[in-house]
Nucleic acid binder design. Structure first.
Lengths: 147, 147
DNA sequence: ATGCAACTGTTGCTTACGCAACAATTATAA
DNA sequence: TTATAATTGTTGCGTAAGCAACAGTTGCAT
């Protein structure tokens, strides 16, 4: 039962370093998940994106402001809800996405070397359940309005 | 093949949030791995610790300076190598460690709910290999002195 | 309809951390 | 020995990201 979280954190940081080395000039590592989420489903709100990738909404707001300034995304107010900003990828981002995907694919390939498909399937299944549990924990952790 | 890194990053952040909520006042989340490593094997050098937990040595230096200022660790020059600083836990830190371990244990228990021991064993085994691969990747990534 | 709660996004503050440059020490090679 | 390279730690700089506080909007209850 010990120290799997340590491994997890290490892997996370290594990937970040790898990504930055490969694509740093174009897109900083931390924004990769974000832009992939945006392209997978254009027109989502910032809040939706924040919950999806489990980052504080303020971080998403700042990341998107930066990405918008660089011309990677556009934000349009939701006509049905003036609170929301819907986020869309620009052409510039869409052109970049293949290389983002390719860097991710390269990382995934290298990092799963020596692991059988069966093992990997179990690994992913467990990982997803852990993610679900982790999300639940931090949700319940929010200041429960006492009664 | 898909998006396991996303889960990994999410779990990482959730744990950090959980730890901070539980022990934030005493010890910020990012330093947990560090103090555990220090207590597991007192007297290691900063560089050794940095490589162990795979954080940039500058981060370790700053974290230790902060921990030292708070009275959690002591750094003594290595008599055999004047470049090195050896890091030791103080009494104050040793008293705190049980609660750090207990928070970690609580997290591990909650997060692995609904996962059988067999699955978890495979999960950890795969995770360790991925960690090893990840470390290798970032090592080789260092500017290879082109002969 | 009015007031209160929830949702959505932004901003200020703080901390974490990576990279590069540097200083000091040690190791290696000539 | 002496010059060069490698270790080890520190510092400056930039970015990421969490939390709290806030403002504007919407939903809901009465």
């Amino acid at each position: 039962m010990p120290k799997f979280m340590k491994s997890l954190n290490i892997i996370s940081r290594c990937q970040s370093s790898f990504r930055n080395a490969k694509l740093g000039s174009e897109l900083c590592s931390a924004h990769h998940s974000l832009v992939l989420a945006i392209c997978r489903e254009p027109g989502r709100s910032q809040d939706d994106l924040a919950k999806d990738i489990c980052i504080d909404k303020s971080g998403v707001a700042r990341a998107l402001a930066s990405l918008e300034a660089k011309g990677f995304v556009e934000r349009k107010p939701d006509p049905n809800n003036k609170r929301k900003l819907l986020v869309f990828p620009t052409e510039k981002l869409l052109e970049l996405i293949p290389s983002v995907r390719s860097v991710t694919a390269e990382w995934n390939r290298m990092v799963s070397e020596g692991i059988s498909e069966e093992e990997f399937a179990v690994f992913q299944s467990v990982l997803f359940r852990i993610e679900k549990n982790a999300r639940k924990i931090v949700d319940n952790q929010e200041v429960t309005p006492e009664k």
